[in-house]
Design a binder for these strands. Structure first.
Lengths: 146, 146
DNA sequence: CTACAAGTTCAAGCGAACTTGAAGTCAAGT
DNA sequence: ACTTGACTTCAAGTTCGCTTGAACTTGTAG
């Protein structure tokens, strides 16, 4: 079992962030008699997953949903982790596809005069439907009706 | 010249966001006698650039730096826009490379037991040096010293 | 026993990127 | 003239992912 400081040093994640993750249910700990947290070694792998998943673009809520799929009773196996990767993997592919569209369309679309992601086919419908986050994440083009 | 409502409709960006962008210096407008904003048509292209660049992962500050490189005196040409794309394009390549590393390393690194981005070579030094944002964005591995 | 580092909770703060609301002005149609 | 909708400013609020500070307890080394 590891103290919060151990986990922080080994993962590079601040103790405050680890407490925050625990509060959000992404990791769990037992308590020593003193009230101090004791993390199982498996927590390190969970934290690694969180860091990876964030880089891929998942929110903590989404990561929580994924982590909830791990067996609560026993230590997760390689197979268990692999199952989590399904969503993840396709998410990466989508992101890469989008980035390639953006790269290709940079000069073609912005440099030209059309200004329309619709016409330039740089943005797929799904991306635009999934307008999430605080601000608008889509571009409706020159003529929303036509 | 376009009203803020025109730009909002044509870009899909809320008027409040456009005012915010203007406040941040990303776009500029003149004023009609009434005090109402009048945007030049070129503002649409700037807004398109902002939307694209955000998807690539640039912050508004970074986007501002890029947009500041456009000629202030005349309407930007296709060539002008292309120049902006240099940083952008390499940024996309870096992101794609990172996503591919993440995808490859998902089962290999998380699924196995090492938990170390160092050893698994999933993360390059530059990514880790560029730990930005509020929280920690790097992973120091099992043994920072060794 | 005394330090002092490391742990605890809880509430508040921060930066990014906007949105919302209040209170008021302007422009267009009937 | 009146109404309606689009516009204005300014301050404050929202979400996300944490961090920071206060006040306090625990664990360890000398």
């Amino acid at each position: 079992m590891l103290t919060i400081g151990d986990v922080a040093r080994r993962s590079g994640i601040a103790a405050s962030a680890l407490r925050f993750y625990e509060e959000r249910g992404l990791i769990t700990s037992e308590r020593a008699g003193s009230g101090h947290r004791r993390f199982p070694r498996a927590a390190l792998r969970r934290v690694a997953f969180i860091v990876f998943a964030q880089r891929v673009g998942l929110s903590l809520d989404e990561i929580g949903v994924e982590l909830a799929k791990l067996p609560p009773d026993r230590a997760p196996t390689g197979r268990d982790w692999e199952k989590l990767s399904a969503t993840w993997s396709s998410r990466i592919d989508e992101r890469i596809a989008e980035l390639l569209r953006l790269k290709a369309g940079l000069s073609e679309c912005i440099g030209c005069g059309c200004l329309s992601l619709d016409r330039c086919k740089l943005s797929n419908p799904q991306d635009r439907a999934a307008a999430k986050g605080t601000g608008p994440r889509y571009w409706i083009g020159d003529d929303p009706q036509g």
